[in-house]
Design a protein around this nucleic acid. Structure first.
Length: 285
DNA sequence: ACAGGATCCTGGGGGC
DNA sequence: TGCCCCCAGGATCCTG
């Protein structure tokens, strides 16, 4: 489930592999993604379009091409974007294949669950799309002050606030749980109840967890890969995510699982004390 | 207006 | 072995 560290890992890998390459053709798989590929624009690749760069905004990937074109990707849950030799075996659920030159390589987009997205946009459309997503700052640019204002203004719990892409862009279920553990804050705490020092703890925890996860090339639980066969390593450092019943690495209490904001949520009942006012039945102490 | 829930999608795993 | 059901969750749409 690609979140910021996984997407960043994919972007860094592609940046290396696509340097000096041009895209000179595209082929579609048999099934549509959530948003149909703009087939009427496929002729853009009738003449080779040099890759100018690869970047990330939140969980969105931009492959910046010459002449004002951009490939846009979102990996959704199971999306995979990687470069292989053209004669590499076909894989099921491959939705787009881009031919590269010089050489005999391809950029392939595969997505088993088809929650992902691929598009071909002009620079203006890219800008408009990013603006319409109302993405908040990258976590590394998010100040405690900004988080404080967002938290105070919300009636939601911390888990929901951290996963809201308009608060900060790129955080998903794994890193929300891990950051809240690091900050010793219960995921069910309401944002507006946070003290200033708690917000500061959370902001530092978020950056710390994400930086470490990027160093590890993200987390591979089942489906995340970068490059041809690269696996993340941060799953070996999970403190609470998917650790239900195991001892807390800080206090040995058994890690608990609950559901918040519709997502499975993991926390230590001792290190992350429950809010005094319970939020329905969803919060277990 | 806002928050929470249902929905999309597929493969893997558990229970019987 | 096979079948059914549940679970995973990013974004979006719907409902209260």
């Amino acid at each position: 489930m690609p979140e910021l560290p996984e997407v960043e890992t994919v972007v860094r890998t592609l940046r290396r592999q696509l340097r000096g390459q041009s895209i000179c053709g595209v082929r579609l798989g048999p099934r549509q993604l959530r948003r149909p590929w703009p087939s009427h624009r496929s002729s853009v690749f009738d003449s080779p379009r040099p890759v100018l760069g690869v970047s990330r905004r939140g969980k969105w990937i931009r492959v910046h091409l010459a002449d004002g074109w951009n490939l846009l990707f979102h990996l959704g849950m199971t999306g995979r974007l990687w470069v292989v030799e053209a004669d590499a075996p076909d894989q099921p659920h491959t939705h787009l294949v881009f031919d590269l030159s010089p050489g005999q390589r391809q950029l392939r987009f595969q997505d088993v669950r088809r929650f992902g997205l691929a598009d071909l946009l002009t620079n203006e459309e890219w800008q408009r799309m990013i603006a319409s997503e109302h993405l908040g700052p990258e976590p590394f640019d998010l100040t405690a002050e900004q988080l404080w204002h967002k938290a105070r203004a919300s009636r939601r719990c911390l888990k929901a606030i951290l996963m809201d892409q308009s608060v900060t862009a790129g955080v998903g279920n794994i890193y929300a749980d891990e950051a809240l553990f690091e900050a010793r804050l219960h995921p069910g705490r309401l944002g507006r109840t946070l003290r200033r020092d708690e917000v500061e703890r959370l902001q530092i925890a978020l950056v710390t967890v994400l930086r470490r996860a990027i160093e590890c090339h993200g987390s591979t639980i089942r489906t995340f890969f970068y490059g041809e066969n690269g696996r993340g390593g941060y799953q070996n450092e999970f403190r609470v995510y998917q650790q239900t019943g195991k001892p807390c690495p800080r206090c040995q209490a058994a890690i608990r699982r609950t559901v918040l904001a519709g997502r499975s949520t993991h926390f230590c009942p001792r290190c992350q004390p429950a809010p005094r006012r319970r939020l329905g039945r969803a919060i277990s102490r």
